Simulated scan of single mutants.
Amino acid sequence: MQLRAYLIMAFIISSVCVIGFSFISLLISDQKIIKFDSWVIQLIQGLESPGLTSMMKTFTFIGSAPFVIILSILLMFFLFKVLHHGIELILFVTAILGSACLNGLLKNIFQRVRPDLHRLIDISGYSFPSGHAMNAFTVYGIITFLLWRHIPTKWGRSILILFSIVMILSIGISRIYLGVHYPSDIIGGYFASGFWLATLIWFFQFYKEKRYNKKYKSEI
């Protein structure tokens, strides 16, 4: 029954993400989201200050590939050496690599040019969906999933969730603030990563439950 609930939840989340991503991509293709993007960009960049710029550059670095690689290596070491979780390690590596491959594929499909309104940093490449948004959602989403069961208290789990949400949103907002992404790039990145994570966790839970049942029956 618990497996069924997990699978239904994962299916619903992945379906919502696919619908959301499709909706955003259609709006972008028909250029019907320009006003929304412009309004949000003006709102966020209207808060510009030297201190906030430094903070946003820090968040954008945290969502960059070099930082994600370092963080991933540390977590891989923790999963394998401390928790001795080989299967979870495979899940983590698959989530990170798969998200990066999916982002590259989607960028080449849509080939959206980056905004050129008020850039605070220089960057090349296509804009949609945001790689930083996908990195943030995937990394902190999978970290939350893997560490959840090891935190015994509700307040500890609440802090974990709150921390992950803050990091995901802050990294996404930093890309808009720095002028290298449209808000729709960030939203699309969240949806794409949400679909990937939900699908991956669906298969992971299914595999673990089947393996547990097989082991239980063999012991009886």
Results as ranks from 00 to 15, higher is better:
I90M: 11
I171G: 00
V113L: 05
V82E: 07
G194W: 02
H132N: 00
V18P: 01
W39L: 11
S15I: 06
G51Q: 00
A192C: 04
M9F: 12
I161K: 08
G188H: 03
S49W: 12
I143D: 00
I123N: 14
M76K: 09
F163T: 15
V93M: 02
G104V: 11
S99Y: 00
I173H: 06
I161Y: 12
L7V: 07
Q42H: 13
L162K: 14
K217S: 15
I13D: 04
L200P: 00
L79H: 02
S25F: 03
S164G: 11
T144K: 10
R157V: 09
S14Y: 00
L105Y: 04
I87P: 05
L52K: 08
L97G: 14
A192G: 09
P183V: 04
F163S: 13
K210M: 13
I69Y: 03
L120I: 12
L83E: 15
T60D: 01
K35S: 11
S170E: 10
F204Q: 12
V139P: 00
G104D: 06
I62K: 04
Q111D: 15
H132E: 02
A100K: 11
I173F: 01
A136H: 01
A5Q: 11
G156N: 12
P152M: 06
R119Y: 06
I173L: 08
Y6C: 15
F92V: 08
P115R: 10
I34W: 02
S170H: 07
T94Y: 00
T138P: 01
Q31E: 12
Y212K: 11
G156E: 05
Y6W: 11
G125Q: 11
Q2A: 14
I165M: 10
L83A: 15
R149N: 13
L117W: 07
K208W: 07
T53P: 04
W148F: 05
G172C: 01
F206P: 10
D37V: 06
F163I: 11
S72N: 09
D116V: 11
L197P: 00
K210S: 15
S184T: 08
E209I: 15
I159N: 13
S38H: 10
S22T: 14
I73F: 07
I69L: 03
L47D: 10
A65T: 11
Y126R: 14
D122R: 08
P183G: 13
S170Q: 08
G104T: 07
F137R: 09
G172Q: 04
R175P: 01
I159M: 15
I87G: 05
P66I: 05
G156F: 00
N213D: 10
L71H: 09
S170N: 10
L52F: 07
F77K: 13
I186E: 03
G179L: 04
F23P: 02
A136W: 00
T60N: 04
S38Y: 03
I69M: 10
S54Y: 05
G141V: 14
Q2P: 06
M55F: 05
P66D: 01
F145N: 08
P50M: 13
Y177I: 12
Y6D: 14
D185H: 10
G179K: 05
I28T: 04
S64Y: 02
G51A: 02
I34Y: 03
L71T: 14
I28R: 06
L162E: 10
L71D: 13
A100M: 05
S99N: 15
I70R: 07
